[in-house]
Amino acid sequence: MAAKKKSFSELLKELNEFDTKPRQRLLVKSHVASGAKATQKPAISKQDLGLLLKSAINDAVASGRLSGTSAVTGLRALGLEE
Score class of each variant (00 low, 15 high):
Ser67Pro: 00
Ile57Leu: 06
His31Pro: 02
Ile57Pro: 02
Leu80Pro: 08
Val32Asp: 06
Arg25Lys: 14
Lys41Tyr: 12
Ala33Trp: 00
Glu82Ala: 14
Leu26Ala: 12
Ala33Ile: 02
Ala62Pro: 03
Glu82Gly: 15
Ala33Gln: 08
Lys13Gln: 10
Gly35Pro: 00
Lys4Cys: 01
Asp48Phe: 04
Ala36Gly: 02
Pro42Ala: 14
Ser55Cys: 02
Lys29Val: 06
Phe18Glu: 13
Thr39Ser: 15
Gln47Pro: 02
Pro22Gly: 00
Ile44Tyr: 04
Leu66Ile: 05
Gly74Asp: 08
Ser63Lys: 07
Asp48Gln: 14
Leu75His: 03
Leu51Thr: 11
Leu12Met: 13
His31Ser: 11
Val28Ser: 12
Lys54Glu: 13
Ala36Gln: 11
Gly50Gln: 03
Pro22Val: 07
Glu81Arg: 11
Ser67Asn: 08
Ser70His: 07
Leu26Phe: 09
Leu12Val: 10
Gln24Met: 13
Glu10Ala: 09
Ala62Phe: 04
Ser70Lys: 14
Thr39Phe: 08
His31Met: 00
Glu10Gly: 03
Ala60Pro: 01
Gly50Ala: 10
Glu17Lys: 09
Leu12Asn: 05
Ser34Phe: 08
Leu15Trp: 13
Ser7Gln: 07
Val28Ala: 14
Leu26Ser: 12
Ser55His: 09
Glu14Asn: 04
Phe8Ile: 14
Phe8Thr: 12
Lys29Gln: 08
Lys5Cys: 03
Thr69Cys: 00
